[in-house]
Simulated assay, not measured.
Amino acid sequence: MKVHILGEQAETQIEVLKRSYPKSVDFWDANWLDTMIIIKIPGYSAHFDAQLRADEFRDFHKQLKEMNKRLKRKVELTSMEGVIDVQGRINLLGRIVWKVETQYPVGTGAVLTFEFDSDQSFVPPLLKELEGVLTNYPVIGTP
């Protein structure tokens, strides 16, 4: 399962590999997902392992759906551990400015911050990819 945040000459890809703790039923343990993050921007490429949470994908999907409807609002995918932070802002013409910050290894590693543009046409495929992730890795339990 892959999630692509795309723009002109830029790609942030998150591949969800598996649940980190597949036997857990506790909200705090069961929703960790092992992922691979791949960044491709002019002059740089990076790939690294990261743990993200199913509820982070759920919240991002909900915000993105609302942004696609109303053409306003900021959306954000923020990892609890600080490995990735993606923010998108849309204007009334459907142009989205994405700001991405990654850190690897978490807490002590190199930080890469970059920005890129896309338009609203990239949102429907992203929503479908997120729906696929949430179908295969639904949020388990409640906090």
Rank of each mutant, 00 (worst) to 15 (best):
Q9R: 15
Q9Y: 11
Q9M: 13
A10T: 05
A10S: 11
A10W: 06
E11I: 02
E11H: 05
Q13C: 10
I14C: 05
I14M: 05
V16L: 08
L17A: 07
L17S: 03
K18W: 13
Y21L: 15
P22R: 09
P22A: 10
S24P: 03
S24V: 04
F27E: 06
W28A: 13
W28P: 01
L33F: 00
D34A: 06
T35L: 13
M36F: 13
I37W: 01
I38C: 09
I39H: 02
I39K: 01
I41T: 06
P42R: 10
G43A: 03
G43C: 02
G43S: 01
Y44L: 13
H47Q: 14
F48K: 02
Q51R: 15
R53L: 11
D55G: 04
D55V: 05
E56I: 05
F57E: 01
F57L: 05
F57T: 00
D59T: 12
D59P: 03
H61K: 15
H61P: 00
H61F: 12
Q63T: 07
K65N: 04
M67K: 11
N68A: 14
K69I: 14
K72C: 13
K72N: 13
K72A: 12
K72V: 15
R73Y: 13
R73E: 10
K74E: 11
E76L: 11
E76G: 08
E76F: 05
L77T: 03
L77C: 04
L77Y: 02
T78Y: 10
S79W: 01
E81F: 10
E81Q: 05
E81D: 06
G82A: 04
V83W: 07
D85N: 07
V86F: 07
Q87R: 15
Q87F: 14
Q87T: 11
G88I: 02
N91W: 10
N91F: 12
L92P: 01
L93A: 10
G94P: 04
R95C: 07
R95F: 15
R95N: 12
W98M: 05
W98G: 03
E101F: 11
E101K: 15
E101A: 13
Q103C: 02
Y104A: 08
P105I: 03
V106D: 08
V106M: 11
G107F: 01
G109R: 01
G109N: 00
V111C: 00
V111T: 01
L112H: 07
T113V: 14
T113Y: 08
E115L: 10
F116Q: 04
